[in-house]
């Protein structure tokens, strides 16, 4: 299965959530590959604490160079052995593989040609054969990478593979409108995908939204709010819900919602069970949300439309 992560705006927590999902999925026993297609700023290495690949790999065998046909195979980094974080090192019992396929440092965006599409198809085919879950992190907005992938996934060779899209957005007015535009708008993913040969209804049904950094009004942290603040937030939340429904981002198309966590506000990192249980720096709700979302990612019922 291939999961494509994207968002309209930067700062939605797309990369950090995707990394956490890959991590959780691996803990749940799947072999997971994380492909850093964020060509403008590959950051997955930093989130996974893989030294030498914080801002893309320096080996010269990153995804940029692979797609441009400058190396035969992209580099694969085993996170369980390469991570510098104490808690991540060593594959836990029962966990699957967790592999990072980094971008190249200083790679940047590049024009897309038909050869590149072919290489992308080859990459996906081989990755899919090797891993149960291939998570591809795209950059924000309508990027070259998104076009590349829309073309690649429309190809006949990939028809047998399940491809799903996750669109990340924060729970604010602007982000909701932007995310809806990215998917349903003019020159949005659906339109662009249909042009490239995707079936509109199928494509639409393979896209789900993930809300990030959502304030949970019923959480204990909110106890400090003044009553008028709480009342105001509740009304706003209701308005946002209505807006989300109108822009087709309502509950039916939402796959999950990640609560606001102080840890993630200041540092993009994986949230391990250690962070919740021992050091207690992260909220249990956050890790639970990742855990649930990782399960729903591969749970067919959650992708069944009404």
């Amino acid at each position: 299965m291939i999961i494509l992560s994207t968002s309209d705006k930067g700062g939605t927590g797309r990369s950090v959530t995707s990394c956490n999902l890959a991590y959780r999925r691996a803990l749940q026993g799947s072999d997971v590959a994380y492909l850093d297609f964020d060509f403008g700023s590959p950051t997955a290495g930093a989130i996974l604490s893989v030294s030498g690949a914080e801002r893309g790999t320096t080996s010269g065998a990153g995804l940029h160079h692979y797609l441009q046909d400058r190396v035969a195979e992209p580099e694969q980094i085993d996170v369980w052995s390469a991570s510098e974080r104490e808690g991540l090192r060593g594959r836990p019992m029962g966990a699957g593989r967790l592999v990072l396929v980094p971008g190249d440092q200083g790679g940047g965006e590049f024009p897309v040609g038909t050869e590149m599409v072919d290489r992308c198809i080859q990459l996906f085919l081989s990755m899919e054969a090797e891993f149960e879950l291939v998570l591809v992190d795209l950059s924000a907005g309508r990027s070259q990478a998104a076009d590349l992938i829309l073309s690649a996934t429309a190809a006949r060779q990939l028809q047998a593979i399940t491809v799903r899209w996750l669109v990340f957005h924060r729970w604010t007015r602007q982000h909701i409108i932007a995310a809806s535009g990215l998917v349903f708008g003019e020159r949005g993913l659906i339109e662009a995908g249909t042009e490239r040969g995707h079936d509109r209804a199928d494509l639409e049904n393979s896209i789900r939204f993930v809300r990030t950094a959502v304030l949970d009004l019923s959480s204990p942290e909110m106890a400090g709010l003044r009553p008028p603040q709480a009342a105001w937030l509740q009304s706003c939340n209701r308005e946002l819900q209505e807006l989300a429904t109108k822009t087709k981002l309502g509950r039916t198309t939402m796959l999950g919602s990640i609560p606001l966590d102080p840890v993630l506000q200041w540092r993009e990192q994986l949230i391990s069970d250690n962070d919740v249980v021992f050091s207690q720096i992260a909220n249990p709700q956050t890790s639970q949300a990742y855990e649930d979302l990782a399960k729903r990612l591969v749970h067919d019922e959650a992708w069944m439309s009404l």
Binding site: Q241, E242, A244, T245, G250, R251, T252, E301, L306
Partner: peptide, 21 residues
């Protein structure tokens, strides 16, 4: 309208699944 089901309603009915179920 699954998109608009209130949160406390979902909590009360969570035995039956989510707002879509």
């Amino acid at each position: 309208q699954p998109d608009q089901t209130a949160n406390d309603v979902l909590v009360a009915l969570d035995f039956m699944g989510d707002s879509v179920e």
